[in-house]
């Protein structure tokens, strides 16, 4: 019960750990900064509750966000005429019949629907509409781009590409951004 008993802890002798002393991760512990950071303590330099969005006791099994508790007031449900739809909730079932509705949507709405509903009628409809608005879809980047109206691109000698300034829509940051880019015609559709 005296001070001598603390010597193995102070020395942190790895040999001592094997020789039947103490597991230092539990006695001396560890620097908790990374564990606190992974918990979100603090987040954005502010104090937040963390247990309401707690994913798992271990960082390794917290690969994805979890849906927290939330409630939707009644007045938000069954709103009629969302997305220009006669039917509530809205639906897009026909390429022919729904084209006019889609033409009324803003660019961002089109992008949202394109990325949110793969392999559906609406993905096709939004593709067609964006093309009408001179956006082109880049097959490798999986992103939409349009010409920067302020600059005329320079077409290459072989006619297979052009170099110029384009406006991209970045779906990760959810914003339009201007980039200089070498555009190959066979990469877009």
């Amino acid at each position: 019960f005296g001070l001598k008993a603390l010597i193995p802890l102070i020395k942190q002798d790895p040999q001592g750990e094997k020789n039947g002393q103490y597991d230092h991760s539990m006695t001396l512990g560890a620097d908790l900064s990374s564990m606190l950071y992974s918990l979100g303590i603090p987040r954005d330099k502010q104090h937040h509750r963390v247990l309401d969005t707690f994913q798992s006791p271990w960082a390794e099994t917290s690969r994805s966000e979890v849906e927290p508790k939330f409630s939707i007031p009644d007045s938000f449900n069954n709103i009629s005429n969302v997305l220009q739809s006669n039917v509530t909730p809205p639906c897009f079932d026909s390429i022919q019949n729904d084209q006019q509705r889609v033409a009324l949507f803003q660019d961002e709405t089109l992008f949202y629907l394109f990325y949110k509903h793969p392999a559906t009628v609406i993905q096709e409809l939004t593709y067609l509409e964006l093309r009408k608005r001179n956006w082109r879809y880049h097959k490798t980047l999986k992103a939409w781009l349009t010409k920067d109206p302020m600059m005329e691109p320079i077409v290459s000698q072989d006619g297979l590409s052009e170099k110029g300034s384009y406006v991209f829509f970045d779906p990760q940051r959810w914003e339009k951004c201007q980039r200089d880019f070498l555009l190959f015609y066979n990469a877009i559709m």
Partner: peptide, 11 residues
Amino acid sequence: LSLPHPTSIFF
């Protein structure tokens, strides 16, 4: 929201 539809493999 929408029925399934075969879209481009690049999408």
